[in-house]
Design a protein around this nucleic acid. Structure first.
Length: 470
RNA sequence: CUGGCCGUGGCGCAGUUUGGUAGCGCACCGCGUUUGGGACGCGGGGGUCGUGAGUUCAAAUCUCACCGGCCAGACCA
């Protein structure tokens, strides 16, 4: 009795699978305006967990949250030449408001370097005011041609950090610190997504930056997704917004700034890195609901036993939830929780209950096990840890087996059809990069021989990781 | 913007070739029986057929324009 699959299988049509899961796991819908999205409560609960975890790490890195306006005077954007050039094609500009045409149009922020630069300039007078470490959680708008929910939408949610430093070395070190201690740590430890870190080529650099660092992940279809970026802005913005200070010897100096961000795109990464043909698989540390305790059927004491388990788990600090919707069939509810990717299910029914047991199910492996009721708390906690590390291990292995060391551009092109190709940057170069671009293959990042972020692209042993990307 | 496919109840589709006034599955509502992997029976509700114009006695169906979606290309978190 083979039922129709719940989702279009990944192997059959990956983009379709992605669309299916967005709808069936109740993650998000398209918004009424082209390219916008509505994030549904379950999807938003995952985003809120991401925010909480990232926010905590940002604060640990010393930055403080603030909020800057959605509207930016158009003139601000035009001050930094590369910045305008990079962003002007995707700006949403307000020309009319209050029933009148505005004297100066305002743009809806595509990113906030400019407004924040203007205020940093006011706030920074002395070397004692540095470093100035700011962050904001906000929405931004970039009018995109081809959009996909979470991966590229005209409006998205993100966190953007903006800092000013007294020296280039300090700014550079901070941009790297954010990449390591905030982004990579969060992605690996919480999202269970193994990410490569590296620097971007000139071609891929942020508009107005002197250096862009990034975290890159491999999705289940072998394509790359940029999960986060951290930019060294040099003195480009500090000069045009006059962020300057008096140093210890009384000299006037120009500051060095950075900016860095992660967005709701990480939701797409989560889905495409861990999701399988039965739905999402949420790593336990991220999961808004880690355990669902299901009452199989009413009237046999299961309801009471399940409620008791939920409170015990909650008391132990587990994010547990009761599913007592016994007016819906058990099979239907199981499938719903699998779609949503809740890591562990505890099934409470008369058969097991008669033996003082319940059934525990791992979402990631679809593995069921009978466990004495008294051991549930302990077993669940162990399982959550195990699932977290297994998801990371599985994703790492998939990435590694789909990463190929190559020595020619032709081989790189070939390998990128399946996954990542690693090719010496000295071999590829900007000409090779342009050549690969004809086949929609891009340099995701440059790494030093040991997998770290190279100090410069000319450093010896630098490897370009190339792939098709979202 | 370029090329291909496609817009019909919430979702997925048939109906379009050969114009005749809209149907199926799932979902939804009610009642009952069910509940250890998408339950079943009976009874219901819901659609300006993407939008506009045109041809016609008559348009989901034919013509034109526009809008939107998906996939593949140029840009980006």
């Amino acid at each position: 009795m083979a039922k129709a699959p719940v989702l279009t299988p990944q192997s059959e049509d990956f983009p379709r699978w992605y669309q299916d899961i967005l709808a069936k796991a109740e993650l998000a819908d398209n918004g009424p305006v082209r390219g916008t999205m509505v994030i549904r409560p379950y999807g938003y609960s995952l985003w809120e967990r991401m925010q909480a975890e990232v926010d905590q790490r940002i604060k640990a890195a010393g930055a403080e949250n603030a909020y800057f306006p959605l509207f930016i005077p158009q003139s601000y954007l035009t001050r930094e030449a590369e910045h305008v050039e990079g962003f002007s094609p995707e700006l949403a500009v307000v020309t009319h408001a209050g029933g009148k045409e505005l004297e100066e149009p305002v743009v809806v922020r595509p990113t906030s370097e400019t407004v924040i630069g203007e205020y940093m300039s006011k706030w920074v007078q002395s070397h004692r005011d540095l470093p100035l470490l700011l962050n904001q959680w906000a929405n931004v708008v970039r009018w995109e041609l081809r959009t996909r929910i979470f991966l590229r939408t005209s409006e998205f949610l993100w966190q953007e950090g903006h800092t000013a430093h007294a020296t280039e070395a300090d700014a550079s070190a901070y941009a790297l610190q954010i990449l390591h201690d905030v982004y990579r740590a969060f992605m690996v430890d919480v999202l269970a997504i193994p990410v490569l870190i590296g620097r971007k080529t000139r071609q891929e650099r942020f508009a107005g930056a002197i250096n862009t660092l990034a975290c890159e992940a491999m999705m289940r279809d072998g394509k790359a997704l940029q999960m986060g970026t951290s930019h060294e802005l040099g003195q480009n913005f500090a000069k045009v917004f006059d962020i300057s200070f008096q140093d210890t010897s009384g000299e006037q100096q120009t500051a060095w700034t950075t900016s860095w961000g992660v967005s709701t795109r990480m939701m797409g990464g989560l889905i495409m890195c861990h999701g399988d043909d039965t739905g999402l698989r949420v790593p336990p540390r991220l999961a808004a609901t880690q355990v669902v305790v299901m009452v199989i059927k009413d009237g046999d004491g299961a309801g009471e036993a399940a409620a008791r388990l939920v409170s015990e788990l909650q008391a132990a600090g587990v994010r547990a939830k009761l599913d007592g919707r016994t007016d819906t069939s058990f099979g239907r509810r199981s499938i719903d929780w699998e779609l949503k990717g809740v890591p562990v299910r505890v099934e409470v029914g008369p058969r097991d209950l008669a033996n003082g047991e319940v059934t525990i199910v791992r979402r990631d492996l679809a593995e069921k096990r009978q466990v004495p009721i008294a051991e549930v708390g302990h077993r669940v906690e162990m399982l959550l840890e195990l699932i977290q590390s297994d998801l990371l291990a599985e994703a790492s292995e998939r990435r590694d087996t789909n990463t190929f060391d190559v020595s020619t551009i032709e081989e790189a092109r070939e390998a990128a059809q399946q996954g990542f190709a690693r090719i010496p940057w000295a071999t590829l170069g900007e000409e090779g990069e342009a050549k690969l671009a004809e086949d929609a293959i891009t340099v995701r990042c440059l790494q030093s021989a040991d997998g770290q972020v190279p100090a410069s692209e000319t450093e010896s042993g630098v490897v370009a990781v190339v792939a098709r990307a979202y």
